[in-house]
Amino acid sequence: MIAAIENIGRFTLDTSLSLRNTLTFAIQVIIRLLNLRTYNSASRMVFINQFYFTSVQILPLFLFVAVIFGSLVNGMAFQVIKNLGLYDYLGRLLMGFVVTEVAPFVTVLLIALRSSSAINAEIAVMKVNRELNMLDTFNIDPINYLFVPRIINGMLSMVLLSSLFSLVVLAIGLFVSSAVFGTSVDAYNDTVLQAASLLDIVIVLFKCATFGFFITLIPIRLGLSASMELTSIPVVVLGGMVKVFLSIVVIEVLSLIIRFI
């Protein structure tokens, strides 16, 4: 009984400490993000390479997923809408559900699965190989050189890829809408535009950027917590990915609360 209570207490303390460390690290990174002196030729190169691996290389697969997903979601949803006679809600479905919820979620999952895990392992390996020590020896700040470019890449990739996903789904929506309802381009545009709100778009873009920030920040922080042993790498990658998914859920919930307040 006492052991169980101790376990709960330990878990709570560990969680709050981890949360505090993550937030402290996040504040540190944000301060550097806003400092122009952070940016130099070396960090630009890291950013370009990271962005290439995160967004450009994944683009064909990503567009393929967007097309398949868009066709399925649009096909099913439009059929239901048609059966219920709720054509007026078509725009709200597309803008309020697909663009603001589904697109960021699918994108964040894809990026987290591909890039967050890679960043987590990469930082852990650098720590074990003493490459981070080397940076310190040569007066190279790892936050400026390694972390900030990766985090900017995460934020930008999320915003761009999620927006592309939305555009692809909306474009497919036009085809499906004309096939199911026989609507014209203008009618479809009007329906979608009526449901579109600039504030919602801003909130979605901000949500995407927040997703991107945390799905790169958390793997970096967990990667840094690796010990000098190779065996610690899988452990920190595992922990990092679990925390990445938790952060996705938390951000999703918070964004929903903000939208519906």
Binding site: E131, M134, T137, N139
Partner: peptide, 17 residues
């Protein structure tokens, strides 16, 4: 001499990737 230091050591390896 940290500000002008150029260390050649196994403790300061090349970045592998």
């Amino acid at each position: 001499h940290k500000s002008r230091l150029g260390l050649v050591s196994l403790e300061a390896p090349l970045i592998a990737n």
